[in-house]
Computed example of a mutant assay.
Amino acid sequence: MAGFPHSFPFDPSYGYTLESLLRVEAPVAPEDFADFWQARYRRALAVAPEPRLQPWPEHREGYAVYDLEYRSTDDFTLGGWLLMPQGRPVRRGLVVGHGYGGRDAPDFDLPVADAVLLFPCFRGLSRSRRPPISDQPYWHVLHDIDQRDRYILGGCVEDLWLAVSVLTGLFPAIAGHIGYMGISFGGGIGALALPWDARIRRAHLSVPTFGHHPLRLELPTVGSGCAIRDYQRRHGNVMDTLRYYDAASAATQVDVPVQVAAALFDPAVAPPGQFAIYNALAGPKSLYVLEAGHFDYPAKARQESELREVLADFFAEL
């Protein structure tokens, strides 16, 4: 059982062992779960993203870097970055999602060669802030949670699909060679998006959230799950919406290769929810077990280095 000295008023391993985590099943999805998401996907693909690129003021060796804006659903303008490799051909593309802390800049050290990289900021966060959506995780995750069809997470999934549309529009030759990488919030959004978009051919999800909402409501955390637990205590109707936004339920529909990094100890994203997503994946999958997530621990640098090597091999097949 994972365990580290900590000051949290709860056990971030929740009493689970690796063996018991690997037995966590996805909750039963609504009968119209697939219909709900397929209809959203069709509507999203009808949107022309109209990307606008401006050279980024900072030079980075090996990349041409651009500030990016594009249009998503609900006429939402999203900001982000596009990195195009210089001096080598573009053979693949990768959309890179961020955690609930947002993103201040793109990553320049991802282990994916010959790839154009698109870093979107999901609606309401970082470069895509827009009132009245709060950029604070506690409030962002509650935005329109009482309206199933308008809940903020659905819009964020559509933002990801439109990012793929940007890549295929700007670089038609990489169609069939597009992947996704997302951590925490971005991992959960990725799991929700993957089943319905055949343009995404493989994905990496790191400590993904939004898995098994019924369990999340039982387990204390310091992350977005805390906000949802508080909302449920006040209103009692949160599952009317969340049963349609369960990343573990979505994972049962995923048939492309997925690499998951899931943690045994995590105060922000309870491990049973992470493993529920991995366990439910219906297609080829691989697991890298982190000792902890959202937490500093002695082996963190070593595990991050090992995971980089895993991902280099994984995305080499993209």
Rank of each mutant, 00 (worst) to 15 (best):
H6A: 06
I133A: 02
A115N: 04
G211P: 12
T73C: 11
A175K: 14
M84Y: 10
E69N: 10
D266S: 04
V65A: 03
L45Y: 12
R123E: 00
M84T: 15
W56E: 14
C156R: 00
R234C: 13
R150Y: 00
L18I: 11
G87S: 07
G154C: 00
E309G: 15
H212M: 09
L82K: 07
A280C: 05
W81A: 03
G283Y: 02
L53I: 07
C226L: 15
L82T: 08
G293R: 07
P5S: 15
L45V: 12
R243Q: 15
A312W: 10
L192Y: 01
A312D: 10
H204D: 09
G176Y: 08
P284C: 02
P272L: 03
M239V: 02
R60P: 06
S7F: 14
I174P: 00
A301W: 12
S249M: 04
F36M: 01
A203L: 03
A64Y: 11
L78W: 01
A270F: 10
S184I: 06
I277V: 15
R229T: 03
A299F: 12
G186T: 08
W161I: 02
L290M: 14
E309W: 12
D104T: 14
R202Y: 04
H140W: 09
G80D: 04
F119C: 05
V258C: 08
D75L: 06
L264F: 01
A198C: 14
F36K: 01
R52V: 13
G273I: 05
A261I: 05
L219R: 13
L160G: 00
V207E: 02
F185V: 05
